[in-house]
Design a protein around this nucleic acid. Structure first.
Lengths: 356, 356
DNA sequence: CCCCGAAATCGAACCGGTTCGATTCGCGGC
DNA sequence: GCCGCGAATCGAACCGGTTCGATTTCGGGG
């Protein structure tokens, strides 16, 4: 395989001139550049990426961390697929590559982050689905390496892209309230995720805006699995709680909820309306089709890479207190399970407030 | 950041000795090794992966190609998720990393393969879901780089891991035939994939073994999408063809088929039995739960990496005519939609043959 | 006591690029 | 005709490891 020295020799110039010419730098005469490029073409020369990295200290590799408990991988496969597509598109456009790091716990994330940072295997990190207080924040800060989170760790000034999950919660609650439901249950995700906390806050606000009381008994939390969601709803039904709608934090939980309701002789949407979040393929094809909130994960992925590259190419490290953030809007996807038309955007539900 | 020269200096030895000591090579006295390791620890030294790659010519990166048409990404998200998990596990164990290359067409694959090979960005390639005659085989052969396919390209001596898709087809046909069905339709995938051809062959054999005639009219082909499967089955129903079971090449197609059947007033499994392939989350939670064939994709992923590493570390290139292959067995997952118990493994269906 | 060979260590070259400081070249101005 | 300057080119150092051939050290045998 031809190296730059071969090219230089054939073009009759020095190695340094060849390098300048090949990289389109100024200070090379047109005639020389032409000769160098010609030689490169003739020798089928292609620069060695590793040598380049060593020389200029840039790997052009972005490390992507995806957490998987097995059930999570399956339940969110569609979500991660979309995320990935967006990231890949953004990276490719700018000549970057993605390396993939599947991790099963935050401790493992911490460990792998450490080895990657130390061995200088990538120019920056993208960490998806952080919990509220990830254990590796100190490590990241010390390393002073560009990072972007997909999802928001609490009380950290690291850059992140995320949906506005308060808005997601609010959207869901309002949609069901607008359809006339007075007792709307919220089957939330685990509390260790920031998105769960944010959505709960949004749910609360949405109810308030429609003058509905916030009832703690109607807020349930379950893992992001069908099984756990099922048993949670079964328990709620057994306790005799009254409600006419369930807002679920993920599609897979909605499926569990639907099974529980059916098992209890309740039909959807006639007896209970159901609204989910994620818009994975599942919901479109389910019977009944499940209304859900689309998080536009491909956009999320695209923006995360863009933000990371801004840091890398701007020479700014995430630890430098760059508190950039991007919020991706989410949108309702109305389907049969919620038994309702989209909330009329014109409608003003009233004053809300404590008096509700 | 400390380099190996810093370590050598602090330990009072030459750089070369430090390198030997750090890599656990023989020919270094115990005393010296101790001192070097001690120095490394004190300086918090971690070798630079890029420098290492340049020096020894090994990147320790495996390039993974995943094709995505958008619909495919969604319909097979579970499948790729499992594949990925297996690959990652195998790679991690041996100190390798995965780089991810999402491609939308075989032409794009060809192009990206070329740039990766040329820039020496990875030690080997894993290419998933090749078509029957991928356009980049020549490129691969010329590059003489280790490659493993996940899925079998026809008439190529490149190494691959795959399910035994003839067996998958046979399994499906036999299962339905054993339940007493005489007219079993096969909603196959696109003919450009080797797995489609193999499954068709298996389906034919399965029927034969039960003495059932092979009827071309009962073999339909559709894209791996819900929509296309739906319209294909709708057309079949409209044509008045008689059949009492459908064997679908993927879960997502089964969902489309179910919708078409329901729309035609047929219920599953009472009027028509349905059996699918893939065992994605979808099938478990669908109503009715969909019987399917599990392809054990995690194992497929694990084996593909193992096979690739065997080539890399054995110094054998895929183009050297190494016709290794691994077949991963598949297993039936019986659920309501097929309206039947597992085929009795004891049962011998008879002589089969033309006379059936 | 000297020589020889094996073990331990070292120095230098190398991997394939980039970059910086020095050098050469051509040209205009005085 | 000489000086100075900017443009073009060059040589060498550098990135941070590995490896190979040469050199030193040490112990044992003659």
């Amino acid at each position: 395989m031809a190296t730059i020295r071969d090219v230089a020799k054939r073009a009759g110039v020095s190695v340094s001139t060849a390098s300048l010419a090949l990289n389109g730098r100024p200070l090379v005469s047109e005639e020389t550049r032409r000769r160098v490029l010609q030689a490169a073409r003739e020798l089928d020369y292609h620069p060695n990426a590793v040598a380049k990295s060593l020389a200029d200290g840039r790997t052009r590799v972005l490390a992507l961390f995806i957490p998987v408990t097995l059930e999570h991988l399956f339940s969110s496969a569609g979500f991660f697929g979309g995320l990935l597509k967006g990231m890949h598109r953004a990276a490719l456009q700018r000549g970057y590559h993605l390396s993939l790091h599947v991790v099963e716990s935050e401790e493992e994330t911490a460990e792998r982050v450490r080895t990657i940072v130390r061995s200088k295997r990538s120019d920056g990190l993208i960490i998806t689905n952080p919990t509220v207080h990830p254990p590796y924040l100190g490590e990241l800060r010390r390393a002073a390496i560009p990072v972007v989170f997909v999802g928001r760790p609490e009380e950290s000034d690291f850059p992140y892209v995320d949906n506005d999950n308060v808005e997601v919660g609010r959207l869901g609650a309002r949609q069901l309230a607008a359809a006339g439901h007075k007792r709307i249950a919220f089957l939330n995700g685990p509390n260790r995720f920031t998105f769960s906390r944010d959505r709960l806050e949004g749910y609360r606000r949405g109810l308030l805006e429609y003058g509905l009381p916030f009832d703690e008994d109607l807020v349930w939390s379950s893992d992001l699995t069908e099984e756990h969601a099922y048993s949670t709803v079964v328990a709620a039904l057994a306790s005799g709680l009254a409600f006419s709608a369930i807002f679920c934090a993920s599609d897979i939980q909605a499926v569990g909820a639907l099974r529980a309701l059916r098992g209890h002789g309740l039909s959807v949407p006639e007896n209970v309306a159901v609204l989910a979040v994620n818009n994975t393929a599942l919901t479109r094809y389910y019977q009944p089709p499940i209304a859900t909130i689309d998080l536009h994960e491909e956009k999320l992925g695209y923006l995360s890479v863009e933000m990371l590259l801004r840091q890398i190419e701007g020479g700014v490290s995430a630890a430098a207190g760059a508190d950039w953030q991007a919020r991706v809007p989410s949108s309702l996807v109305i389907r049969e399970s919620c038994g309702c038309a989209p909330e009329d955007p014109e409608r003003n539900p009233g004053e809300g407030g404590e008096s509700g």
